Simulated scan of single mutants.
Amino acid sequence: MSVAEPYFVGRVDTGAVLPRESADLWAEHVGRNQGTLQCRFASPSSFRGAMAVQRYAGYQLIDFWSDSIVYSRSRADIRRDGDEGLRVMIATDGEVRLRQDDATAQVLPGYGAVVTKTRPVDFGQPLAARGWVMNVPAGALPLEVGAGPALIDLREGLGAVVSGLISELGEQRATVDGPEFAAACDTIIDLLRLCLRRRAAMPTVLATVDTAVRDHVLRHADDPDLTPIEIARSLGWSLRQVQLALHHTGTTPSELIRGARLDRAHRRLRESPSDRTVAEIAYASGFRSLSAFGSAFKARFGVTPQDVRPR
């Protein structure tokens, strides 16, 4: 059995290098944490920034501060790394601007926004700013295709709870371990999903179908016989309606089922006793093929199922 991936906590501060080296240092670490993208510095020779990174088993949370900068992810960048994940951007000081699908969102303190890495995106700061960036697996949050960044109000209600959890998780980065960090991220993602569902006061038919399908999948993902056709039949809609509703939020029935099963397997791998095998967990999570499970798990989380097991 391979050794579990260690829980990583790190810090980068451009003040530790010469001013002429600060932009290169920042671009290197941003690319390492966020994948392929381009950095445009307002003043490369005097740029200053710092980030604190927490990472474990495909989950990542970054507390950052930096001078003015713009990050751009093009279609060529998307083809180069194939990252299909989501990013949650939360401003705590200053302003962050996001642009995707020809729509622009101004993220001020007290707000957050979600974008996908499957389509070109620009995000940056006209002035110095501070905030959080959280990596979220593809399909874990409902996003309306073509509608641009999805804004979330974090000033009150459930949004304030999410904001508090993220801040506290960052504050406790040195005292939590890997499985605890991942479990906290799971909870935050679940709450963010609820925040996004509550954004529309009058849900459309497609939004209603999307919510019902996601709830059904969460309840029955362990069933290996769960298929898109079975979902449609159980809920009383046509398969086409189900496909359209999920397409509207950037996923498909099969991707949704696979994602839910992978999330469950991920949690079980972290929490199950060592005498429970990876195969047993895969089959208990709805997978029929161990090889297919291993490939899908590595594609989603960037590590193998064995790497997630406790030491």
Rank of each mutant, 00 (worst) to 15 (best):
A4N: 09
V9T: 10
R40S: 08
F47L: 02
F47I: 03
F47N: 01
A50C: 13
M51I: 09
M51R: 12
A57G: 01
F64M: 03
W65Q: 12
S74F: 07
R75L: 14
R79G: 11
R79V: 09
D83M: 05
V88R: 01
M89G: 08
E95T: 08
V96T: 10
V96G: 03
R99N: 12
T104F: 14
A105P: 02
Q106E: 13
P109M: 06
V115A: 07
G124Q: 03
L127V: 15
A128K: 05
A129C: 09
W132D: 12
V133Q: 04
V136N: 00
A140C: 07
D153N: 09
R155W: 12
P179H: 03
T187P: 10
I188N: 00
P203Q: 04
T204I: 06
A207W: 01
P228Y: 05
L235T: 04
G236Y: 07
A245R: 00
L246I: 11
L256D: 02
A265T: 06
A265C: 09
H266T: 02
R270K: 08
S274F: 13
R276Q: 07
T277A: 03
Y283D: 08
A284Y: 00
G286A: 02
R288L: 12
L290E: 05
A296S: 11
A299W: 11
R300V: 07
R311V: 10
